[in-house]
Amino acid sequence: MTMTAAIDGRTAQTGHRANASRIAAVDIVADLGKAEAIWRELESQHGSHTPYQRFDFLAPWQHHVGEREGASTLVIVARDAERRPLALLPLACFRNYGVNVASFMGGKHSTFNMALWDRDFAIAATPADMTALVAEIAEHGNVDVLALHQQPLTWRELQNPLALLPHQPSVNGCPLLVMEPGAEPAARISNSFRRRLKGKERKLQPGPRYYIATEDADITRLLDWFFQVKPLRMAEQKLPNVFAEPGVEEFIRAACLARLDGGGGGRVIDIHALECDAEVIAIFAGVADGHRFSMMFNTYTMSGNAKYSPGLILMRDIIDHYAAAGYRALDLGIGSDDYKRLFCKDDEPIFDSFIPLTARGRVAAAAMSGLNRAKRQVKHNPALLEMVQKLRGTLR
């Protein structure tokens, strides 16, 4: 059932906030279909959001993954006094810590979480605007706490207005490569590293072919290969197979096959592949928006060709591809895997917010915040991290 906050009379009831904030009303929509039109409108108006907030990315996630996890749709639309949309928060609500918790849709498959913002509003947004937004959600959303993870401080040099609320650093940063237009290839990847990769590439015979999958048949074939090989790789690393969780494979297949803008353009998730003769030897998949490529998932062959580092060769090709297309940045997803540091020397800071909306939510927000701080402390303390990793290995 869709629950839409009543708008008539709201401005009069909250007039003391209207003087300080452009947000005059909030609609709360519990049906993705009824949120789609305004969602796509904000996408098409060149607003501020990451590719992870596209409707065609999050709708299949919510349908295939979120609903199976018991998460209900909670789309928040903030409007001004003329009913123009200023922001859309694509949230999912679930029970945790005995309270109603609202978090961004996408779960662990979304590297960055944001609202979709009207660009002009985002530029001028103030703490008073965000306070008004939170107050409206608290009044009408039936939510105890907002747990908003992995938010960028800025996106495409525009502030993220939610950073105006109380927040803390996320457990991990995001390895980032900034690419200056027209820069020499060595500015992205050093000449010595390029020579090393070229030497490995020469040992792959016949020479490997790099491409982006554009046809449905190729996308399906590459995903079939990925879902066979990835569990073997994760078992080899003694890691749980997150891709075996209910609905995840269906979500990834749907998003990889979905076309941007519903037409003949690129895909919601692009798959980059490296093949050697008839063998797929590596894939990287991620989202792109004309400015930045953000990697989501990857794997490489279990055959003897693995010793020639096909994943690193593919990463070099992807970086050069997006540099040639005028992209300004590329990230390799949350985490500090060793291969990421070969390409990305810096981390982009990201933040989490735990915002209580009720008395019960205050206790839950404090617990979530404390747990995240503890995780961050472990991650950034080599001795503690080694202890935890040994313990996990023993338990497994």
Rank of each mutant, 00 (worst) to 15 (best):
M3G: 14
G9V: 09
H16C: 06
S21R: 00
R22K: 01
I23T: 05
A24R: 00
L32D: 05
W39F: 12
H46A: 07
D56M: 03
A59C: 10
W61Y: 11
W61D: 04
R68V: 09
T73R: 10
V77P: 00
E82M: 06
R83P: 02
L88C: 04
M105I: 06
S110T: 15
M114S: 14
I123D: 07
A128C: 11
A138S: 11
P152N: 04
W155G: 03
L165N: 13
P166Y: 14
N172T: 06
V178E: 06
A187I: 01
R188K: 00
K198S: 08
R202V: 14
G207M: 06
G207I: 07
Y211R: 15
E215L: 01
I219G: 01
T220F: 03
L222R: 11
F226M: 05
F227K: 14
L232C: 08
L257F: 11
G266H: 00
D277C: 07
D277S: 13
S294H: 12
M295Y: 13
M295G: 11
I313H: 11
I313A: 11
M315K: 11
I318E: 13
I319H: 09
R328H: 02
F343P: 03
D347H: 05
P349L: 05
P349I: 01
I355T: 01
A359E: 13
R360Y: 00
G361K: 14
V363C: 11
A364Q: 05
A366S: 08
A367E: 15
A374Q: 12
Q377F: 07
H380C: 04
P382V: 06
E386N: 02
R392F: 05
G393R: 11
